[in-house]
Nucleic acid binder design. Structure first.
Lengths: 130, 130
DNA sequence: CAGGATCCTTGAGGATACTG
DNA sequence: CAGTATCCTCAAGGATCCTG
């Protein structure tokens, strides 16, 4: 029974998990567009659907459930006919703004950097940046 | 020929693309562990491989190429025998630290929030958080 | 309106073997 | 040592139809 490989910087490696957690919350094709829509105040299922072009009902439903499980989004059902459902960001969900902002800043700069460089050489690899 | 749907907040929707760009740079199963390893100064292919448990040569090679294309990582070949290759973060790559830090802070708090809540109810859904 | 159920496609990633 | 080449699996996401 030997020591596990805890040498030098294994504690630092522990940063990976929380960072991945944060990334997971935003990952997938639709999470971000949905979150942005909700941060802008859109609420009903069909409204979000319209605000997120291309998404299917199935995915929207699934992703909203996911966001709800992560307590980022709150779901309220109104007993109208047909039924109306209202989605809102939770207060906690709003804390994502900071993260998204950091990503936004870096991402914008990255775009300038990559396109600025590569457009001069080759028609940018489509797999490289969306 | 009608106006595209540019109404109200379509400019704000433009934040989605750069944020996704930033997310793409970090996404996938291995990007982050590799980046963290390199931020800690690990360099040679096999060293990184050891620092990122579970990764295959194929994936490591592929991800490093990807990071290199994004100019986050620099690759240097030394004419030894057998050949030695050294990977280092570029100065630009180091700018990721800020983003990763923001994700880290939010992610750690998220972990506390979700586990703190849910452990009291049910054995946490494995699909929910890694 | 707000979804659920079912079936299908695609691509990320794994396993294994090989090479300069 | 530092990869490439091939084949394979599996899950994210798409398409379509159905319902309270």
């Amino acid at each position: 029974m030997e020591k596990l490989d805890k040498s030098n910087h294994s504690q630092c490696t522990g940063i990976i998990r929380p960072v991945q957690d944060a990334l997971d919350v935003l990952n997938g094709k639709w999470k971000l567009p949905i979150i942005v829509a909700l941060l802008h105040g859109y609420k009903r299922f069909s409204e979000i659907s319209r605000q997120v072009p291309g998404i299917t009902d199935r995915m929207l439903s699934k992703e909203l459930r996911d966001l709800e499980l992560n307590q980022l989004v709150k779901r309220k059902v109104y007993d109208t006919f047909p039924v109306t459902v209202e989605y809102t960001m939770t207060q906690y969900g709003e804390t994502l703004k900071d993260v998204i902002n950091a990503l936004h800043i870096w991402g914008e700069n990255h775009r300038r950097k990559i396109f600025g460089d590569e457009l001069l050489k080759q028609p940018v690899d489509k797999d490289h940046l969306g």
